[in-house]
């Protein structure tokens, strides 16, 4: 098993897949990502991230139906696995903890008065 570190982009991809209402396949993920983040994202980056996450065991995938629009190819539909959910949960908790550690009022810009 490869390393289980979760990169920032990977985390977002995981979250998007988890949140996606329709079939979570490459193009759909790309669109959702662009919509949510406002960034332009290339399809190859999505594919690389998804396949890596699959290697790490955070995503599972199955092939859908063929369609002419796809040049007779099948969709590869992703779903977040249990360990994927776990790792998202961990990341969330870590952030939460870090946020909690920040003393109230720290972010006040005018803290010195």
């Amino acid at each position: 098993m490869k390393g289980t570190h979760l990169g920032e982009f990977e985390e977002i991809v995981l979250l998007v897949i988890a949140a996606l209402q329709q079939e979570a396949y490459g193009l759909a993920i790309k669109k959702e990502l662009e919509e949510q983040t406002g960034r332009t994202i290339t399809i190859s980056a999505v594919h690389a991230a998804c396949n890596r996450l699959e290697d790490k065991g955070f995503l599972s995938a199955e092939f859908g139906e063929r369609s002419a629009r796809r040049g007779g190819k099948r969709k590869k539909i992703y779903a977040v696995t249990m360990s994927g959910q776990q790792v998202l949960q961990n990341a969330y908790e870590l952030r939460q903890k870090l946020w909690d550690n920040i003393a109230p009022g720290s972010f006040q810009i005018d803290w010195s008065f």
């Binding site: 396949y25 490459g26 193009l27 790309k30 399809i43 190859s44 594919h47 396949n51 092939f63 629009r69 796809r70 040049g71 190819k73 099948r74 969709k75 590869k76």
Partner: peptide, 30 residues
């Protein structure tokens, strides 16, 4: 989509990825 570019893609990429990549690229192209 341009066949030549697809051939390049097929030559370069691992088989395992091709189904997904080609499919999504086709759809994106449309």
């Amino acid at each position: 989509p341009p066949e030549r570019i697809l051939r390049l893609l097929r030559w370069f990429c691992k088989d395992d990825f091709l189904e997904e990549i080609e499919g999504d690229l086709h759809e994106l192209f449309q």
